[in-house]
Design a protein around this nucleic acid. Structure first.
Lengths: 107, 107
DNA sequence: ATATATTATCGTAATATTGCAATATGTAAA
DNA sequence: TTTACATATTGCAATATTACGATAATATAT
């Protein structure tokens, strides 16, 4: 098989898992941390900083965009990728809601 | 390729990504939520509740155990899988630290 | 218009993940 | 010890992810 049986789970469970999944790669963690330390960010910097090929970085950025964590604006010849702070906070809150409501009553 | 270049990243980045990754599957989210609503938990219940095969559930439980989120005790013929509350809190704190320190200064 | 620089997309190869049937292991009761 | 039940492991097939070279697309400068 290899296909996740999405239809078995609720939309909330799938959304939550998707957030976790996108953050579940060290390159994407590193990208977010690097962007947060810059006042501006262009993909080319990331290629040097992270050490993966340009195509690979571009793909990771696409995944981070897919859940709205990054927004990109054209800035001259290059792109300015930024963290979407509003979305960032929303997702953090949802993850915390999951952590706080999922508590043990067991053993 | 297909192999994540772990050696390019810091241990913290890899650990963080690993936590996110393990939580990044709806079945594992559902398992944790189900366990949290029970006073006890045995795998067999999960098979009926989640709707995946017994072997599959067992595998997901193994991954949750791998980051210490679950601990299992033998209880008669079956297993009592419980959330490791201490570890749960530690991981929640680490994720929040990541969210809080990774902030945007951009655009 | 052409050249240059930057990012996105496509195609492909390698590895990882998901899921299940079959089987093995472990535990308790008969 | 045999039987029955519960969970773990193995082996396999299908799909997903990761990574990169090549190429396309986009924007600025010459």
């Amino acid at each position: 098989m290899g296909i996740t049986k999405t239809q078995m789970f609720t939309e909330k469970q799938n959304d939550l898992a998707q957030f976790f999944k996108v953050l579940g790669h060290p390159a994407r963690v590193a990208i977010l941390q690097y962007i947060s330390n810059q006042n501006a960010c262009i993909c080319n910097d990331l290629v040097e900083e992270i050490g993966l090929a340009q195509a690979t970085i571009s793909q990771h950025l696409k995944e981070l965009k897919s859940i709205g964590l990054l927004k990109g604006e054209v800035e001259g010849k290059s792109m300015c990728y930024c963290i979407n702070v509003e979305r960032w906070t929303t997702i953090q809150n949802q993850l915390n809601l999951f952590f706080n409501t999922t508590k043990s009553n067991c053993c």
